[in-house]
Amino acid sequence: MDVSRKLSMVFVGVGGQGLMTAARVLAEAAVDSSTKALVAETHGLSQRGGSIEVHVRLGNVYSPLVPVGEAHVVLGFEMIEAARGVKYLARSGMLLTSETIMRPPLPGVRVPKRAEIESVFKSAGIRYYVVPARAIAEKVGSYMTENMVLLGALAGTGLLEGLVDMYRLRARISELPYADKNLAAFEEGLNTCRSTCGNL
C-alpha cells in the first residue's frame, strides 16, 4: 500500500440515506488493507432528515476533517446536498452524485431541478458524474442499496487503488444484512462509473 498518499473524500446527503454505513464499510476495508482510515461524522440533530456530511480520509492522514477545497472526491447521495458539498471539492477533484433529489420539508420551499443543478456544475467547470443510483437500486431490488451503488461508483473511479483492496471491500460489504443485494448494487455502481468516470 502507498504510505505517502492521501485520499480525502466527503460524503454528503440526508440523514437516513446510509452514508455512515458506506463510509464505515470503506474504512474497514481500508484498515483490512493496512491503510490508515479516518471517518468523521456529524450526529445528533442532523440525523432528523437534515443535511449530513461524513468525512473519509485514507492514507497518510491525521486530521479527521477534510478542509474546504481539498476533497479529491465529493460523493453526493442527493443532488441538492451534492451542490452544497461542492465547497469541499478540490479544483482537481471529482464530484459523483446520485440523481435523487429530496424536497426539504419546509413550507413553500423552491426545489431546483436536476437539469438546473447540472447546468451550474457544467458552467463552473466541475468534473462530475450523475450516477443513476436510484434506478440501479430499484433494479437490484431495494432502494436501500443506493448507498452501495454510490460506493461502487466511487470504486469505479480507480481512486481507491493502492489504498483499498477490492476483494477486501467486497468482503466487508458481504457482512451487511441483505449481502446479495448490496453486493449486486456495488458491482452495478462500479461498472457504470468505470465505463464513464475515466473519461471525465
Binding site: 440526508v14 437534515g50 441538492i80 426539504p104 420539508p105 423552491r110 438546473e116 458552467s123 463552473a124
Partner: peptide
C-alpha cells in the same frame, strides 16, 4: 474552491 450560481434550499433537521 468552486462557486455555484444557484440558490440552494436549506435542509434543517425536521
Amino acid at each position: 474552491t468552486y462557486e455555484l450560481k444557484l440558490d440552494l434550499p436549506q435542509r434543517p433537521p425536521s
